[in-house]
Amino acid sequence: MYRILEARFLAPDVKLLRLEAPRVAKMRQPGQFVIVRVHDQGERIPLTIADSDPETGSVTIVVQGVGKTTKMINQLDEGDALLDVVGPLGAASEVEDFGTSVVIGGGVGTAIAYPTAVAMKQAGNHVISILGARNRQLVILEEEVRATSDELFVMTDDGSGGEQGFVTTKLQQLLDDKREINHVLAIGPVPMMKAVAEVTRPAGIPTVVSLNPIMVDGTGMCGGCRVLVGGETKFACVDGPEFDAHLVDFETLVQRNRMYRDQERAGLCQLEMAHPKVGPQHHP
């Protein structure tokens, strides 16, 4: 059992949880994730390690409730526990002093990009962060990201926070302004990552995305997480999850992620019938 030491909503349906997992906390590097199981009939799902503290042996995850398992996790509170937490899994982000590094987070992707942004800053980069969300309420970790960035831009679809527009609107602007950009990391919904790849492709700016295929074991044993990168099959759980955005076949990723849609809907219905109040969850 892995105790939950802290739990709070950052935005509607987005919850931060700090877990007791000493082995993971000690070994973890930016870009890595854990696989968790909530209860003994539950599935295994991957979640990025947003932060860790080897001293207290704790790791932080930020979970967006999108389906049965994530919504179940988001019903848990301090003092509850997760049945299984294994990690850290995946390869660490490639961090070095690139010069100017743009870190883009879309929605809950901000939580996934945040630890790498911290590492980029520590490595000496000039860090420009761009956070995107549908509306102001859904922007998470803004203060944390600001603290580790030299420049921060917040973009919302409806203009309710920061500037109105997409993250790619801002990225394009920076390029149009002839800002020198040496490296881009983009993490968020697949359409966003794909759009970022298209913006940086003509200029040939090295761009990295973090892929989210469906995983089971997370150790290279099942091959379910396979993705096509530069025409080659890669296992995202061991070779990734970060890959060269200009080589990723996003279409295949989207199609593979849809594979269990019917079963996932049925699972969510089950949960909603058992707990009628799981609908959108909010700040207390």
């Binding site: 099942c222 091959g223 379910g224 396979r226 099959t233 199609q255 593979r256 849809r258």
Partner: peptide, 20 residues
């Protein structure tokens, strides 16, 4: 570590390794 055949279409939904 599962071996695949490296044939066209192996990424289609519904294609599994036996391990998975």
């Amino acid at each position: 570590l599962p071996k695949f055949l490296n044939l066209p279409g192996e990424h289609l939904g519904g294609v599994y390794s036996a391990n998975e």
